[in-house]
């Protein structure tokens, strides 16, 4: 099976700091992949390069067989990639329904009925249906995270990149999130940056561990769980495994 997304020798340096170094990465269609690693391992820099927020220093990115290394972010989204922000980034002064409608409208255009239907469906799916008329600024932090997710869903992406989606969610909300992601698994490919190991172990088909900007390990949850190198990196007692 050919990869939906792949990177070759993808690198990013900020001045002298090698944030991401020569990462080869392949993501199969339909997969749920978790990207984990200690703080500062380069996870967010890596996915920022995937979506086009950050330009790589060197290396290449391909999506669905097409080289997208030089494509601007909006064009990558148009190809079917979607990204939810680590730090909640919604339109705080536009109604919740309009936030999601903006996400759906790029795909559906002027078809107002379809936009309304898709927006309502996405909001219902994350459990925000009752808040459609509210302003995001008035929602709790957890609900704003869910709104981010709904904006991702409304785009019907082929690849959904979620940057720490469960951060700030209550336990009950995390349970609902897990159900939602499992439910999505048949529809789209998911790349998940996540700190909550419970979520990672339960959801991910495969896990990639980044450390100091390089791929430290990659494998099934069980393999990663057993890996001595990963244990060492997370314990922080020297990472040159």
């Amino acid at each position: 099976m050919s990869a939906l997304l792949s990177t070759r020798a993808l690198s990013k340096s900020f001045g002298g700091l090698r944030a991401v170094h020569e990462v080869d990465f392949d993501l199969a269609p339909g997969e749920i992949r978790a990207l984990i690693g200690p703080n500062g391992a380069g996870k967010t820099t890596f996915v920022s390069m995937l979506i086009g927020r950050v330009a790589p220093t060197s290396g290449s990115i391909a999506f669905d067989g097409r080289d997208i290394t030089r494509l601007p972010a909006h064009a990558r989204v148009a190809l079917g990639m979607a990204y939810t922000f680590q730090i909640t980034s919604v339109f705080a002064r536009l109604e919740v329904a309009e936030n999601v409608a903006l996400a759906a409208r790029r795909r559906l255009g002027r078809d107002r009925a379809a936009v309304a239907r898709e927006s309502a469906a996405a909001l219902d799916r994350v459990g925000l249906g009752a808040h459609a008329g509210a302003l995001p600024g008035d929602l709790s932090y957890g609900h704003q995270r869910l709104l981010e997710l709904a904006m991702g869903l409304a785009q019907r992406p082929r690849l959904l990149i979620l940057d720490e989606p469960t951060q700030g969610l209550a336990d009950s909300e995390i349970e609902a999130f897990k159900v939602l992601i499992r439910d999505l698994a048949g529809e789209t490919t998911i790349l998940l940056i996540e700190h909550n190991m419970g979520v990672v172990m339960e959801l991910a088909h495969r896990i990639t561990v980044l450390n100091f900007g390089e791929v430290l390990a990659e494998g099934s949850p069980a393999e990663i769980h057993a890996s001595a190198a990963v244990q060492t990196a997370y314990l922080g007692t020297g990472a040159d495994a």
Binding site: I51, H74, V90, R106, R107
Partner: peptide
Amino acid sequence: IAIRENDERARLLGYDI
């Protein structure tokens, strides 16, 4: 209006800002 409110978000919804 979306650009006025948050242009980075609008860009990552796929709009050519």
